[in-house]
């Protein structure tokens, strides 16, 4: 009893001591709040001019307002989000559907590895954004063009991680299957693929990040709608609040994607 009260008293977040989950949650919350309050105060006190930055409170108002008001960039927030999502998801899903199986097969089948890897190594170091001008030349600035650029940026980590995941399969586990009489192909899908899954998910995570950042770049260069376009318009009209709102929404959607991915990952990779 005595000991219990003692540990409770010393529960002051010192080294090696743990507070309750509630305390930690409140700490994180306090951190965010402090950040927002300082931001707000800097603007209220006039230390930072509101030409450069918008107040958090104004952003909340703008966020609500943008649901119905298309000014100044010509689209409501939902329309912009939808435009961006459509492009990025098209590119991303294509990249995953093509890239992951290709990478897995490249890792297992030597002939395919030798056939594809050299081409791949040549294309790989080219930054996805540098494909934009050529893509505009080929396909204009529509959905197809942007989806293509995003496909490119997301495709590469999907292939590389799946490939590496298969390559890193524990030899002993392969031998377990082989000595049980499994064929080469059976060993591939019974051992190599499950063993590569963790790496595949890491690849998809990188792909989502790439797709999202490339999206903004693509839309800022060539688009007529979307979140990147909204930011660009914010710059043209010197509206810091529009730019910041665009950035925050992009960040939030990115975080949302990550959350979904973690959820799926935890359900697929149950053994960790």
């Amino acid at each position: 009893m005595d000991k219990k009260t003692k540990t409770k008293k010393r529960d002051k977040l010192g080294r090696g001591q743990n507070a309750s989950a509630y305390t930690y949650a409140m700490l994180s919350f306090a951190g965010v709040m402090a950040f927002l309050i300082i931001w707000q105060l800097l603007l209220v006190a006039g230390i930072v001019s509101d030409r450069y930055l918008a107040k958090p409170t104004e952003l909340v108002v703008l966020f609500v307002q943008k649901f119905s008001d298309p000014a100044p960039d010509g689209a409501t927030l939902l329309v912009s989000i939808w435009a961006s999502l459509r492009v990025s998801l098209t590119g991303l899903i294509l990249a995953i559907v093509i890239g992951v199986p290709l990478g897995l097969c490249m890792g297992w089948f030597k002939a395919l590895d030798r056939l594809v890897t050299p081409i791949f190594e040549i294309i790989r170091p080219i930054p996805p954004v540098s494909w934009i001008p050529l893509t505009i030349l080929w396909m204009g600035i529509g959905l197809r063009a942007k989806a293509f650029i995003i496909f490119f940026s997301a495709f590469i980590p999907c292939v590389i991680n799946s490939y590496t995941g298969v390559k890193l399969t524990n030899k002993t586990l392969i031998n377990v299957a082989r000595t049980s009489g499994a064929s080469y192909v059976e060993t591939f899908y019974k051992v190599a693929i499950p063993s590569a899954l963790t790496m595949v998910f890491t690849g998809i995570r990188v792909a989502v990040g790439n797709a999202w950042s490339t999206l903004v770049a693509a839309e800022m260069l060539a688009a007529s709608a979307g979140l990147g376009y909204m930011i660009l318009m914010g710059r043209m009209f010197a509206r810091a609040d529009i730019i910041i709102l665009g950035m925050l929404v992009i960040g939030a959607i990115g975080a949302f994607f990550n959350g979904i991915l973690s959820f799926v990952e935890n359900h697929v990779i149950k053994w960790r």
């Binding site: 377990v176 000595t179 049980s180 009489g181 499950p194 063993s195 990779i269 053994w271």
Partner: peptide, 30 residues
């Protein structure tokens, strides 16, 4: 492929993505 060989390796070789019972089933399914 024809004979039934089983091997216990020096290093741990349970398939980490399979439950205990699925590990036991692994060779039998093959």
């Amino acid at each position: 492929k024809k004979h039934n060989l089983a091997f216990v390796f020096q290093e741990p070789s349970a398939l980490p993505w399979l439950t205990v019972e699925d590990n036991l089933r692994f060779g039998l399914k093959i």
